[in-house]
């Protein structure tokens, strides 16, 4: 039945059955006991997971870029850069994991911007729920995205011959660090999502920031051959610090200092931007 036909049917006096159903549904329904903040946040997390089921294309977006990078750099440049493709992959894979997570942290900002544009946040804000629950849901979506994309890239790497020297434990620690990095970077784009009107702008701005940050790092090549001015930037680039720590964790050579240096950016971003997000959200 078309929409218009359904409406006409409802208006005809003959169709009293539909009326009865409507009236039954409109009986007084009292709210159940108010749910706690954790319960609210889990519902938003559930929504993020549903999105994967309904929009499987987004997995393609998540994985395609890092996959192309992995294949291109390994087979086209790998031999020239590291002597053999196998050696290059061993060097490159932890780096591409960092790049993947950093790039994919843009998505929650885009999602947020979409929700605002569609007026969905207005509905959330007229519900008696913990006001930060929608953000907690974004984080759940982020964690899912990072795990899925990271898992696929690692899987491809293993197939191509990458071997983490530190084994399972090292890899698990590396993924824990990856999620922390993603969590920290996510705040940047949540702030953007709250400030910028369209999701496309969030993405464009995001990549404008992230491309130089990831290329001028030690992800793709050893910075030894770079000019001095660039090398001094690469040395303090948070992305380089993250990559060094991740390489160390997966190779079993990480020092506590390396890990702490890698955590500086995520921790600082969380501490400074979480209050900004709250303020922007309440003001909006």
């Amino acid at each position: 039945m078309t929409d218009a036909a359904a409406q006409t049917a409802r208006m005809s006096p003959a169709d009293t059955a539909q009326n009865d159903v409507t009236i039954a549904a409109l009986r007084q329904v009292a709210p159940p006991r108010a749910p706690g903040p954790v319960s609210n946040a889990l519902v938003f997390g559930w929504r993020a997971i549903l999105k994967f089921r309904h929009v499987p294309e987004q997995l393609f977006d998540l994985v395609m870029t890092p996959l192309m990078f992995t294949l291109l750099f390994t087979f086209v440049f790998g031999g020239a850069l590291a002597g053999s493709t196998g050696d290059y992959l061993q060097f490159f894979l932890p780096g591409i994991l960092v790049q993947t997570v950093v790039f994919n942290s843009v998505y929650s900002g885009m999602g947020l911007s979409t929700d605002f544009q569609k007026g969905l946040f207005d509905r959330f804000r007229t519900l008696p729920i913990w006001s930060l629950a929608p953000f907690a849901g974004l984080m759940v979506g982020d964690v899912m995205r990072h795990l899925i994309a990271g898992g696929i890239i690692l899987g491809i790497g293993l197939i191509l011959g990458y071997r983490p020297e530190a084994g399972f434990v090292g890899t698990a620690l590396a993924f824990a660090l990856l999620l922390t990095i993603g969590f920290g970077m996510g705040w940047v784009f949540i702030v953007l999502g709250l400030l910028v009107r369209t999701p496309m702008t969030v993405m464009t701005l995001g990549f404008t920031i992230l491309f130089p940050l990831t290329f001028a790092s030690n992800i793709l090549v050893d910075p030894a051959t770079m000019p001095d001015w660039l090398r001094s930037f690469v040395a303090v680039n948070p992305v380089s610090l993250m990559t060094t720590a991740l390489r160390g964790l997966m190779a079993g050579t990480a020092t506590l200092t390396q890990v702490c240096l890698a955590l500086i950016a995520p921790v600082v971003l969380t501490i400074t931007l979480a209050p900004v997000v709250l303020w922007l959200y309440r003001r909006r």
Binding site: R47, L50, K51, H54, V55, D115, K118, G119, L120, F121, D122, R123, T126
Partner: peptide, 12 residues
């Protein structure tokens, strides 16, 4: 509240 534009999650 039902706003001027349907406040729904279009993907769901």
């Amino acid at each position: 509240m039902t706003g001027q534009f349907a406040s729904l999650d279009e993907d769901l």
